[in-house]
Structures are given as structure tokens and as C-alpha cells.
Amino acid sequence: MRAFEYVSPTTKEQAVALLSSTWGETEILAGGTDLLALMKDDVVRPRRLVNIKEIAELRGISFSASTGLRIGATVTLSELLDHPDVWRHYPALVQAARGVTSPQIRSMGTVGGDLCQRPRCWYFRSGFGLLARDQTGRSLVLEGDNRYHAILGNEGPAYFVNPSSLAPALIAYGARLRIFGPRGTREVLLERFFRIPKSEAEREYDLQPNEIVTEILVPPPPVGMVSATYEVRQREVLDWPLVTASVALVFDGQRVRSARVVLGQVAPIPWPSPEAERALVGKAVTEEVAQAAADAAVQRARSLGKNEYKIQLARVAVRRAIQQAVGGGTRR
């Protein structure tokens, strides 16, 4: 790790003032589980770390039936999982958080950090940049080993996958982010927060270098909603899922009134699938309908060479998430 200076502000205004307006000079330290690894690998080289864990207003978690769930950005995954209202109303979020099978990561890692963590692409982590290109500009992902890379949204030049564990579930629930910066507070739909970078100068999310995510706001669960997250993972021990799918279905009697289907680990962003959603809306969820939605979800998927199997996994994850949501009801 390179040397840096360390500040620990107690208000978000101080934090923002301490952050640089240029990427790379400063970094926000929350749980540290990703940032310190990036620094040890010399992928990021901040000259100042701004610890935001001492900022009281970024903490806390609350729920009301009228306004929904408010999660402070520095709430840890453990705190999230300890909250009874989260269990009661947001099973897909619980299942997603439980997928982080390390208690150490759960007690360190924050919800804000989970959303802002950087991709695990092995070329990115080896210093070839977010777009993983060599000096001649060719994509190492396309020519190299892309077994864990994107199958959707992979028209290029970005081929990494978004690693967030919670984002698919939060997006399925229609979560918004509250962001604070030099120009004050703004809100963004979580779904719009993530973006596919077109150049090395861009980040994979809509955040200025001197902005911080302060809160995650999840709408109250509509009557008749069922939801679930299904992960395809190789190991039970701490492991990145190969594919995840979160679904939230709102029923009107036997039929689906509205549906959200969001895949994780398949694209440079958490990947909402309007195709899958369309396949569900207006229908009773039979096995055939779940399968049709699953097929629709990967309709536009394409292999980069070594990751064709992920198309199959995505299909299965979507179908099983739907079945789990329907079968498991709103309980976990």
C-alpha cells in the first residue's frame, strides 16, 4: 500500500469538502473490505482516505409501513440482517445479504460499500484498467480468459460484471439512493445509478468523486408482493456467485400485476430484464411461465468465448428465483 493521509470527518459536509473533485486522489473508506485490497494491489492510489464511519447520519436503519425502509450507507450487512422488518418485508434482500457467507465481511462491509465496490475482473485487479486493455488497445477479456465475465450488456468496451450482492434485490424493490455532494443532496433510482463505462475515464456508477452515498431508500412493500433472490454459487464458503437473480412480483389475485427481474454478476451493471418482466405480467406463474421468463431474460445474452455456461446459469437463476418467490411467499 502506498502512503496516504487519513481523515475521519463527523459530518457529511466535512466529508465532501475533504474529497477531491478528481477521481484517484481521494477515496472513501467505509468497511474497507474492498478498498484496502484495491490499494494493496496498487489498483487505486489515493493520497487521502476519508473515513465516513464516524458520520452519525450515515448510520441507522428504520422502517415504516408508509415510507418504507431507510438504510444508512454505513449500515453493515450484519446490522441489515439483524433488523426484523427487513426479514419481514424484504426477503430477497435478506437472501442476497446471507449470500455473503463470511461473518467477517458481514460485520465489516456496509450497504453503501456493497453498492460502490469495484469489479472483481482479474484484469482490472491486475492493473489493466476497468476496460482491461493492453497498450495496443486490444481487450484482454475478449482474447483472454473470460469465464467470469459479462454475458449481457457486453457489447464493449466494458466486459466486467458488477459485483454488488445487494443491488439486484434493491433494484427489484425499486430502491433509490440519496447522494450528498458539493451541490447538496440528490436522489437517484438505484437502477439508474449504475452505468456501463465507455472509456477508462468513467466510473461504473453515477457518482462524482466528491459525492457520497448517504442513504438507501426502499419503498414499502406493495400488497401482494412476493420476492426472492437465487444465487448460483460453487462453494458455500465465501465465494462470488456465478450468477444471481432477484425477483419481486406483485400479484393481483392469481395474476402478476407487475414484475421486476434483476440479474447480478452477468453484466457491467446489475441487469434488469424487461423481457423477463413482460413474460410474467398478466399471467399466473406456472412452470411454463417461469421458464418463458427465464428464457426471455437471456434472449440477448451472448458468450465471450469461455462464459457460455453463464447463460444457462442465468436462465436457471431467474426461473428458480421466480419459483422461490412464489413458493416461499413473503417469508424468507
Binding site: 493521509e5 487519513y6 481523515v7 475521519s8 470527518p9 463527523t10 459530518t11 459536509e13 466535512q14 465532501v16 469538502a17 475533504l18 474529497l19 477531491s20 473533485s21 478528481t22 486522489e25 481521494t26 493520497r47 487521502r48 458539493p182 466528491n210
Partner: peptide, 23 residues
């Protein structure tokens, strides 16, 4: 480009109306 320059001088910076220690 830093809003507050990285300096070694005072180990306390005045930001957003408060004093913040820099380590």
C-alpha cells in the same frame, strides 16, 4: 484539484465550518 489542499503544515484543517484532524 483538491478542495482542501493536501498539506503537512497544520495537522488540523478547517472544513465545512469545523476543524478536522489530518493524520
Amino acid at each position: 484539484t483538491l478542495t482542501v489542499p493536501l498539506v503537512i503544515g497544520p495537522r488540523v484543517l478547517k472544513v465545512a465550518g469545523a476543524e478536522v484532524k489530518v493524520f
